[in-house]
Simulated scan of single mutants.
Amino acid sequence: MTGLPFLSQAQQMSCCQTPGATASFAMLASDKQFKSSHEEPLPFHYKSVAGTDITYPTADGKTAHAFVIKSQKPTDNYVFVIHEWWGLNDYIKQESEKIYNDLGNVNVIALDLYDNQIATTREDAAKYMGAVNTERAKAIIEGAFKYVGPKAKIGTIGWCFGGGWSLQTSLLAGKQAAACVMYYGMPEKDIARLMLLNTDVLCIYGSQDQWITPKVIADFQADMKSAGKKIIVKEYNADHAFANPSNPKFDKTATEDAYKHVMEFFKSRLK
């Protein structure tokens, strides 16, 4: 995914893909260079102190799976965590709990856009990522909105695949959207859709990224300006998935700096 700076290097993971408006990014699932750039995660088991796995109904007549950590004191603040291309595994659950602990009084819900499928190989990750159905993903997200309720103030965060879906989740959240963090995720390119966005966006990426390139980000900035929306860009002299310690091009300094900005961004908007 991105960061996970609190895990040992041997325990890390990686990222990527996106939704309908940016469906061209799904083609990366068959890109050999893209797949080989993601180190396969070593076996890792994490037992959460506070989190639980839940299911909830979706409008398509099915159920969805998520990992939830509820605040110790009642609050309408929620952070939706969107996994990267491995799926909602124990790494994502640990990252979710770190965000929960570092933000303080907040609820965290990590969505499962793979419907209980977890990849342990690049081949499976590419297959699951490429098979994500936009309408099903939207049903999972909208079901989560009903689960948290109409008073919830929602922040979103994701990495690559999850970065693109973080933005889409904030778009779907409408007036409930309060903060959106995208780590090297594919942007929405439809200005008319961006005009519906109800929150600022923190966009984090590496200038050496061959997929989420400086031009992709520059175009996104221009589109956000045209839509009358605020975007904060944090660029690092780093490669794709630079915040993933299992990546040979992991950048510890950039990862730690980016995470500080994420915390500041969330804390100022989820008060």
Rank of each mutant, 00 (worst) to 15 (best):
A179I: 12
C180K: 05
A152F: 04
T156H: 00
I231P: 05
K151P: 09
K225G: 09
R193H: 02
Q208C: 12
C180V: 08
I154Q: 09
D190G: 02
R122K: 15
D190K: 09
I157G: 00
G149V: 03
K230D: 04
G206T: 07
Y128Q: 10
A139I: 04
Y184G: 11
K189N: 08
W159R: 02
K127Q: 14
I118D: 01
D209G: 01
D190A: 07
V132F: 03
C180S: 13
G149L: 04
G174T: 03
K225W: 06
K230H: 06
L194R: 04
P187L: 04
L172C: 02
K229W: 12
M186S: 12
G163Y: 07
A177S: 08
I212Q: 04
T199I: 00
T213K: 08
F145G: 05
Q176F: 02
I118G: 02
K153F: 07
G130N: 13
P150A: 15
V148G: 14
V201G: 07
L194P: 00
G158R: 05
W211G: 00
K138I: 03
A144L: 05
Y205H: 11
D209R: 00
W211K: 04
K175A: 11
S170D: 05
Y205A: 10
W165S: 00
L197Y: 08
G130P: 11
T169L: 12
M182Q: 15
T120M: 11
E142V: 11
A125V: 08
R122T: 13
D200V: 03
D223F: 07
C160R: 02
A126H: 07
D124Q: 12
E123C: 13
T134L: 10
I217L: 08
K175G: 00
Y236C: 09
A144Q: 09
M182Y: 12
Q176H: 07
K189A: 05
I204W: 02
A144D: 06
P150F: 10
I204C: 02
S207A: 14
T213D: 06
I212H: 04
A218N: 03
S166M: 11
K151R: 13
G162W: 03
D209F: 01
R193Y: 01
D223N: 15
K229T: 10
Q176W: 09
I141S: 01
K127T: 13
G163S: 08
F220E: 02
S170M: 09
M224H: 07
D223K: 13
G206C: 12
I217V: 15
